[in-house]
Design a protein around this nucleic acid. Structure first.
Lengths: 339, 339
DNA sequence: AATTTTTATGAAATGGTTTTCATGAATTCT
DNA sequence: AGAATTCATGAAAACCATTTCATAAAAATT
């Protein structure tokens, strides 16, 4: 293996000078620079990044902790993160947790061991206290889920208002018996979406019917199951708002399997804006989140944190958008993907 | 920051001993071991992994080079990789290329710089010669795409026979005018799938009609466009075999938009077995690849390579399966996802 | 011309482990 | 009992680049 001293010897300079040529941050006379570059070329020298990292105490690597890469929502966010990271010379380490808190913690340990410069959490199943502890010591950014009352840098949409907006849409269409499929209630984000639903009902003087609120886990399977529960009610809802598109798609399936029609018999609204929601038939009315943008901004935030810049804003709230498609019968002309 | 010498000092032993306690590979008397562990505990010491990596010249990190994480096919493979990696104490670095050869090469450079112990390529747009050069020097495994005539460890399915099988299925159903939407022809995998199509036609004495073969790029958009071409023919095919489910779904869309029916007017078969193919209506008959398994095996192969074990088999061919759903009219009862 | 400042470079220290080699103590063997 | 092994441990080298500090030469100032 070729070392920096080999280059130095061949170029008849000190290793320090070679390092300076490489980093390009200190003036080196063009004459010596040429000698060094020639030697590097001749020896086909590649700096050992491990040694550099040790000396500089930085890894130029960040980790993204994600519950499931297979989920199109998260993979889009991840892509946004990756694109900024790459541009800024950072590598991204993948931390897939399969919703396992143990793994979340395990991955965070990398911060202690100096193996990563920072972390973006796309999920936060752990207790708030625990996360705060990490965020106090190391660069940590939350994306998608935010932690109530904390000052940890976060980028997300306003889940409460988005959810209210979606519910109001259904109310405007004349529905008064609206089912709600929530996410797991130990997550703030799920609570926020439920809150928005409650707010919309309250503003329109519709009473909350506990049977019309069911807890899912964001998977299509849970959407399917909860919709079956709704259908089994004496008075099934005329519309269902699911807290994720996946659940909405599961719900759609349940309706169809029971021989009913969407939106004819039941309207469905989802949340997230994954591509699948457009492809399914009928296409799902949904709140679209700017997934790529969330990742993009989260990485920018993290970089500021890592590189110790003052943050103008620590918490970003991006705009979401209600996209009306066929599944709630508001608009009968197909809002199809135009290639 | 607390260092190993701090622990050594407190425990009144040498750093070497602390290291030995940590690595647990050499005998240390239980007495000193206790002293050391106590000191570690008291100081809350965490080994600096960077230093360890430098000394051991290993990173316990591998990289996966993937054209697009957002693509469900690749993200499933990635998940398989991740699961093995995690179990074996390896971290996985994400290399998203967006199909850009430049980025593929850029990511491979990490091997030179000793930043990763090995790489799994889920895509190989680069010239074979170039890849071979890397594989000769470093642990490299190909997953999904294999390189003709090379001995680089690879795990994939038999694309030729799978493709033949799918085409034969259509022929058995009575189709004689079968369109084929290929992938980009500079990729072996695309060529293999075309070869299978050719073989099936030849075996059934059906002449190849060049107009019935169109080149896509695995995206749904390209499937859409190519299907439009088919529909514009004087004699449109009665069945279309697309080299990916994404393209099949695009094709499906094109058929519907033109007011035709699948499988009534045109049958469609896809390739890959992504979830989306089951959800779309009609559900797409397809060749399912064992995505998770491909990733899993690829990582196992890579580990053997990294840890210098003899490989019993360097090239693995996993079994694929033709799953018959509605889109080719072979079976009218919905083969639906049962939750 | 003498003095100060700037500039380019080298020697040596630094980052924190792991590992090799050496050593003295303890154990086993003859 | 004396010799040969084994064993636990420590000292020091190794891993490889970066950075601080020092220095001599060159440039700028008086």
């Amino acid at each position: 293996m070729v070392r920096i001293t080999d280059v130095a010897d061949l170029a008849k300079v000190s290793p320090a000078t070679v390092s300076r040529v490489l980093s390009n941050e200190v003036k080196v006379s063009s004459e010596t620079k040429k000698k060094v570059l020639d030697a590097i070329e001749k020896l086909n020298y590649r700096p050992n990044v491990l040694a550099r990292q040790l000396r500089r105490m930085e890894t130029k690597t960040i980790m993204v902790i994600v519950p499931d890469i297979t989920n199109p929502f998260f993979s889009k966010v991840l892509k946004g993160i990756e694109s900024v990271a790459r541009k800024k010379g950072y590598k991204v380490l993948l931390g897939n947790t399969d919703n396992d808190i143990g793994r979340e913690k395990e991955y965070l340990e990398l911060l202690h061991h100096k193996q990563i410069d920072g972390t973006i959490l796309l999920t936060a199943r752990m207790e708030g206290k625990y996360i705060t502890e990490w965020a106090d010591q190391y660069p940590v950014v939350l994306a998608c889920e935010y932690l109530e009352g904390s000052l940890i840098p976060t980028v997300s949409i306003d889940n409460v208002s988005a959810s209210r907006k979606a519910t109001e849409h259904l109310i405007k269409l004349g529905h008064r018996c609206i089912g709600f499929i929530s996410g797991p209630m130990n997550i703030i984000l799920s609570k926020d979406r439920l809150k928005g639903y409650h707010q919309a009902l309250a503003q329109n003087e519709i009473e909350v019917e506990p049977l019309l609120i069911q807890e899912g886990d964001y998977s299509s399977k849970s959407g399917f199951n909860m919709m079956l529960k709704f259908l089994a009610l004496e008075n099934p809802p005329t519309a269902v708002f699911a807290s994720s598109d996946e659940m909405a798609i599961g719900a759609l399936k349940a309706v169809k399997i029971n021989g009913f029609h969407v939106p004819g018999d039941i309207s469905i609204v989802g949340f997230d804006g994954i591509t699948l929601g457009e492809i399914v038939e009928p296409a799902i009315t949904t709140i679209v989140q700017p997934m790529y943008q969330i990742g993009y901004k989260a990485m920018e935030l993290l970089l500021n944190l890592i590189e110790d810049r003052e943050l103008p804003k620590k918490q970003l709230m991006l705009a979401d958008k209600l996209i009306i498609r066929e599944s709630c019968g508001a608009k009968m002309i197909r809002d199809t993907i135009v290639f």
